[in-house]
Nucleic acid binder design. Structure first.
Lengths: 411, 411
DNA sequence: ACCGGTTTGTGATCCTCTCTTGCAAATGTC
DNA sequence: GACATTTGCAAGAGAGGATCACAAACCGGT
């Protein structure tokens, strides 16, 4: 994600880039807009918008369509739309239970999507990478010949260094210091950068742009399966930390009397609110996987006391940990994803009560806890958003290259 | 702190403002620079720098001085310096044991400074505000007649809403929902905004700009006295949260079997690493204050077992909590301030060992824990930095007004 | 003391980009 | 069908930085 500190010296060209970026970003986030709506949203003049749109149109990033009839007086304003079909990204996901691939067009339109189950347990980098490359090839085969994505985003259930795509630790896969980014770059053989990031960080990004966190600037996304990860949005920007390792809220110590964690520590949050904690308390085998979780939830819906008690325990620990995070981050919204979104209906009241008790009054009043709206695909969609980011940040850099690509194709 | 999202539409004027801001900010952070150094740092051309400096000089924000002899070949470049003596801010601090006032000139030069002891315990808003107003008046009396600060910053040991300066909760003072900002604005009767923020948040800002966190973009500042507060810097920007309540790390739950906290919750971090925890374990009265803390540290230096054991306990809990925060935030540096900087020599090894055990390997490798270099004055200096921020963000806005002020004075 | 090399300030001119302004085009309403 | 409203369009103005040629100030060596 190219979101570094802006260079100090600004030139007039900077203004043009920033304005192009603003237009493309608005179209990406809000869908097609009329020229006049763009004028209103950006604050630019009609003339400026006209010139900028013109440039984007000749650069084939954007198309203009006849205005739709609105029934309002005045001359109708043509609709500006991103060239969804010709500007695409490739998104990949390595989750605990599945692998997924998607191709999305500008504006966030899903053009291809496939998710395949994966047996739990350890896998080698080579196996996973080969499967992902196959999935990507198959997805691309269903698209027009010669289509090349402008970027690739990969979500992985593990701790990732964003700068080099090295997976430092992924207990679900049994990975330590595995060069996922480099391997996928070689395997995909695409002439574009491959960005790798943590699934929770990307889930947060997706929920921010397309899901339950829309419109909020300060967000905490909590993704729970066996492990618990977090994606933190501060002031509209992802908190990645110094190397992209930020957001590992599953490993904040919360119970010194607790169980050992896969990370080597003891009493981490995920040992109390992760899948294994739920299954253990409900009397199911720890490695029961999704089937066992489904059973617990079904039991709870049917009123089985053990299942309800297990959910209540998870709910209490969930609320306790969220209280701490709310105190630390003062977010507007907390989004529960993965397993946590499924148990949310059962534990919502407990969580709220726990926040009342354990969070400071001031930040507590301002926060709301809601389940994910994107569900299992949140990290995959976030990977796509990450891949779009360079385009959104500086569309001007793409105006030249696309012409070159078109020339190459026609030659 | 005016650091919101930039407006979408950019104009050419924006460029000029940004460039003026870059120059003033560089001068504020790095001290006087030659024109040619400014050219190198900003990437602007000599001509652009010349024009911008010229504008700042006529606006009396900056002065040019003859170049210093460097012994290097080439024409010497005149030194550009902020008009320290004529561009000042007023900084105030309400700490648990003291009140403080300072007047700082642009560039961070301390022109006036006074700290007075304050008896611990509850005080009314009126008492504190009156004392601060008196301190400010006395400090201003020692400055040239007619000098008016361009801003006022207030650091307070409590949870503050930044937008209105309402102190939501300050257990040290016995305050709940106290309108500190409005009262000080009225009491000081200055025609400039009064910004109020949490002392830890401001301590972090000061350490970032002038202290141990210099050069780091991701920082956690932990300020411990009776309470424990935190200031978080993400990507070079303070994490304030939706209303400025962020950073309350003292109230993250860490020990469900722990003691009740002043906030109403139980087992908060500050109940294990705050002053009372240290005193209780060392066998000193809980309300012994600074004298008792001094005694514990003296005992420890002399090898008294109880004191050493107390410090070790605090060190272990400190390391445990820091491990969680390192996992969440992935900072480059952790700065220990207040009481924690004093105990750091005694617990450094324990803290490092605790991080090794409880923090994830990847973020743990990248972080270093160091004591504050600004000491007790960090929050006060941070308040000054906050008051300078509008000037740094948009110096152009001051170029007009200063002329007006000068006219007023000469009339 | 002088001369060349180097670095920097200065001023004129050009280029880029947005804003302003006047006008034409397209729609709805009376 | 006249009128108001909204929008697109085109030309000119204004702002601001980049470029370039030249002068000024310093160093070092002869």
């Amino acid at each position: 994600m190219v979101m570094g500190r802006e260079e100090l010296g600004q030139r007039s060209e900077t203004v043009r880039r920033a304005n192009l970026s603003a237009i493309v970003r608005e179209l990406h986030l809000h869908g097609p807009l009329s020229r006049s709506e763009l004028v209103a949203r950006t604050g630019l003049t009609r003339s400026a918008i006209r010139a900028l749109i013109g440039e984007l149109v000749t650069g084939e990033l954007v198309v203009e369509e006849p205005a739709l009839r609105l029934g309002t007086p005045g001359r109708p304003s043509p609709l500006v739309r991103l060239a969804t079909e010709s500007t695409v990204v490739l998104a990949l996901e390595i989750s605990i239970d599945s692998l997924a691939v998607a191709i999305l067009g500008a504006g966030g339109v899903v053009l291809e999507h496939r998710r395949v189950d994966r047996p739990r347990g350890h896998s080698t980098l080579e196996e996973i990478a080969a499967d992902l490359v196959d999935l990507a090839r198959a997805a691309r085969a269903r698209r027009p010949l010669g289509e090349t994505p402008i970027g690739v985003g990969v979500a992985v259930a593990g701790i990732v260094n964003r700068s080099d795509g090295l997976v430092s630790f992924a207990p679900n896969l049994g990975w330590v210091d595995v060069p996922l980014g480099a391997t996928l770059t070689a395997g995909l053989a695409l002439p574009v950068p491959v960005g790798v990031a943590n699934e929770s960080d990307l889930g947060a990004l997706a929920e921010l742009r397309r899901g339950a966190a829309r419109g909020a600037d300060d967000v905490l996304y909590v993704h729970g399966e066996v492990g618990v990860g977090g994606g933190i949005i501060v002031d509209g920007r992802p908190l990645s930390g110094i190397a992209g390792y930020g957001g590992e809220i599953g490993h904040m110590p919360i119970n010194p009397q607790g169980r050992p964690c896969r990370c080597g520590s003891t009493g981490c949050w995920e040992t109390e609110v992760g899948e294994r904690a739920l299954l253990a308390r409900a009397g199911y085998p720890l490695d029961g996987g999704r089937a066992a979780v489904d059973a617990v939830l079904a039991d709870a819906a049917a009123g089985v006391p053990e299942a309800l008690a297990a959910l209540q325990s998870v709910g209490r620990w969930l609320g306790l940990g969220l209280a701490g995070l709310v105190n630390i981050l003062n977010p507007r919204r907390v989004i529960l994803g993965g397993l946590l979104s499924r148990i949310h209906p059962f534990v919502a009241d407990l969580v709220e009560a726990s926040l009342d008790r354990h969070a400071l009054a001031a930040p507590r009043r301002l926060v709301s806890v809601v389940p994910s709206t994107l569900g299992v695909d949140a990290p995959l969609l976030g990977a796509a958003e990450m891949a779009f980011e360079p385009l959104l940040a500086d569309p001007a850099a793409w105006l030249g290259t696309r012409g070159a690509l078109v020339q190459l194709e026609s030659a």
